[in-house]
Design a protein around this nucleic acid. Structure first.
Lengths: 313, 313
DNA sequence: TTGAAAGCGCTAACAC
DNA sequence: GTGTTAGCGCTTTCAA
């Protein structure tokens, strides 16, 4: 039944026929046990965040099913208590051939564990020097966004950013500054706001809304463009602006980051993270790693691309 | 190691100690094979839709891990080709103890298959008489929403609805009409719009936006309140209104359906589907079914509850 | 080519 | 209580 070549056509035909008649299916776990292979990979993925990961998951699913593998999902609702627990489950002997770990900080206490046991793992949207990773170049993405603004002729460019202690927020901020410097533009302290909201590190709509309110309260002067560290915040910013009778893009241009579903709806110019593709690549990398455990970790960085819509004319 | 009571404390202690020292873990599939139990359930779930299901999935995950089971996920990107394929995979002999099937139309060609093999299954957000199901009462939800509007004193109530061939849209529409009838209010044909957009059956922001544009183009008269068949459409409606200088809730009140994340952000009054809870209940039901295959299918209908925010003062 | 048997790693039944 | 053995259902090896 498994296509063994040392078997006559005649016999194969007969066996297959009987199998079909009896509605035979090999038992999943008997097979996996005998083969010493799981034909499955797991994904440890945050459920508490911005549904960023769904898109990635779509990519993962589509690639994984090409291989006929199963995906066992561990959705983390509470990172403090569940990350290590699910890593444990993922790595329970024999269960999976490899694991995908998403967005969260990989617990240092597990690096040795994975390396010693040679458990294939790839990190997605998070980084660790010892393991393969797929990330997005936040610095470059921000740089591209701001450069776009500059090329559009903007001089006074503001930024509304999520909490700087979050890695992506920090990197996007650095990209913003660098673009300004490289093009000889001034950094206006008064047009720069770091979110106070801590929920999701400030990557949420309300954080954008209130940060913008604060910007407005500071002075009657406005930048001509604002780079916002994520689309969801940008939507909050636009609303705060609208409430104050300030038109986007008429009075101020807005550029976001991520290219979430809503960005299209709002006509928001932004910088796109290729999430679906990241999922696909992650699975590909993981399979490579499964088939060849010994090579050095590889770090793939995607460069976001500009998506021009109408919030920056 | 498995807590057999016919074993002395002393021995157990010793065995456990050695096991720990050797870093012993039982092999997942050897256990499952010997026990003739999968300790896993699968979920066949649409990936192409409104990320409605994520919230449900959170509930599923949290309940499932209480039982220590694994979740094997089959995300459907293309329903036409993948639904049956994943049902097959789900039911591969021995693989899972039960399956959760979400939102999509359950293929009639598989009802016999499940019944004969006695494969435990529960449907979530979709219905079939032969299987357990967890759904939301769209009719009642709509009724509650409209009743709320009426109690607020509205007389001219409009509705913007997704495509009526979609079951939930139809049910919400029926609830709307019934509420009007029961309270002796007139149904204004001119304030009723069915979306033309077919994407996601019209359950998307743009559909709401354009439907509202059409409403506005019909006449200069406006209803004092509009019931929109989903929050995401309602957000499109609000925007179309705002663009035309019509204030929400100043000029017209809006009520939605679903209570998605953004509804809170927009201060949208709506009717909440308890998605997380539905996930939890679905898993509980599935386990009941796993332990007791012979009882009649049970159909649980959740009644949505009103969430009052400020789009309907 | 085909058939028989050993082994994958565990659980459960049954003597001891 | 404890040790032994026969499955669980498949794959793989090795004679025949």
């Amino acid at each position: 039944m498994n296509g063994n070549p040392h078997v006559s056509e005649e016999t194969r035909r007969r066996v297959l026929a009987v199998a079909r008649r009896l509605n035979y299916q090999p038992h999943t776990y008997a097979q996996r046990l005998a083969k010493q292979k799981a034909y499955a990979i797991s994904a440890v993925i945050p459920f508490f965040t911005n549904y960023f990961f769904i898109e990635v998951l779509r990519g993962v699913q589509s690639k994984i099913s090409e291989f006929g593998f199963d995906l066992v999902l561990y959705g983390v609702n509470d990172p403090a208590t569940q990350v290590e627990y699910y890593i444990q489950k993922s790595t329970h002997r024999g269960k999976v051939d490899g694991v995908l770990f998403f967005s969260m900080k990989f617990p240092e206490s597990y690096t040795r564990y994975f390396i010693q046991r040679e458990i294939p793992i790839v990190l997605v949207d998070t980084f660790h020097p010892k393991f393969d990773s797929i990330t997005v170049d936040n610095f470059k993405g921000a740089y591209i966004a701001v450069k776009h603004l500059i090329e559009l002729g903007h001089e006074k460019i503001g930024m509304i950013v999520a909490r700087l202690e979050s890695v992506p927020a920090r990197q996007r901020f650095e990209g913003f500054k660098q673009a300004l410097i490289d093009h000889g533009k001034k950094f206006y302290e008064e047009f720069f706001i770091e979110t106070k909201d801590t929920r999701l590190d400030g990557f949420n709509r309300e954080a954008g809304y209130y940060a913008c309110k604060e910007l407005l309260s500071r002075s009657r002067k406005l930048p001509t463009a604002i780079f916002v560290s994520s689309d969801i915040q940008a939507i909050g910013v636009i609303e705060a602006l609208n409430e104050n009778g300030i038109k986007v893009p008429g009075d101020v241009s807005i550029i976001g980051f991520d290219d979430i579903e809503l960005a299209k709806d709002f006509g928001l110019t932004t910088v796109r993270q290729p999430m679906y593709e990241m999922g696909v690549i992650a699975v590909e990398k993981l399979f490579e790693r499964i088939n060849n455990k010994k090579t050095k970790p590889e770090h793939i960085k995607f460069t976001p691309e500009l998506v021009i819509r109408n919030s920056c004319p």
